[in-house]
């Protein structure tokens, strides 16, 4: 198989088949092709007999499509990544930012013992001040954020180890 596309929260398994003499088809046989902008005709995509005007831009595994007045972000995941499952992303003690922002305050140091719910880091993002708390009891292993630092979503803010030191 050729991976999966995530579209508006739903996974779609891909099974593109070769068209005879080059080209590509959907599993039901309809041929598909990208249509570059030509003169006055805008860029688009063709599926079987139908033509859709579409603007497409790609960055890594994100395919952005502006189609019929609406914008979609389609994410491609390889077969392997899709099926790898829960194994990915379960860092036991890393706490990640839920949204991009900047660090406003760091309330702990490495070595501090924290209980579930203790405030560890305060971040600010577009007039939203959020306190990031320890998800479970543990000891702070490292704080990866410093006051004033900007960060993107999913960046690790701090790490801790479970239980007693």
């Amino acid at each position: 198989m050729q991976g999966y596309l995530l579209i508006e929260g739903e996974s779609h398994e891909l099974a593109i088949v070769p068209g005879a003499g080059g080209g590509y088809r959907l599993p039901d046989g309809r041929s598909i092709a990208l249509l570059p902008a030509l003169g006055d005709a805008p860029a688009g995509v063709r599926v079987g007999d139908r033509r859709y005007d579409a603007e497409i831009a790609v960055a890594a595994d994100s395919i952005w499509v502006h189609l019929d007045g609406t914008t979609y972000e389609v994410t491609w995941r390889s077969d392997v990544d899709h099926h790898a499952g829960v194994a990915i992303g379960t860092d036991s003690g890393a706490v990640r930012a839920q949204m991009p922002g900047a660090v406003v305050a760091v309330l702990v140091q490495p070595g501090d013992r924290v209980s579930a719910g203790d405030a560890v880091v305060v971040i600010e993002s577009m007039k939203l001040e959020t306190t990031i708390r320890a998800p479970r009891d543990g000891v702070v292993a490292a704080v990866d954020a410093s006051v004033g630092q900007s960060f993107e979503r999913d960046v690790i803010l701090f790490e801790f180890v479970d239980g007693e030191p």
């Binding site: 198989m1 077969d79 499952g85």
Partner: peptide, 12 residues
């Protein structure tokens, strides 16, 4: 982690 994963890895 699963058969599907294994077959994807074999393809890879």
């Amino acid at each position: 982690s699963s058969e599907r994963h294994a077959l994807a890895l074999a393809r890879e």
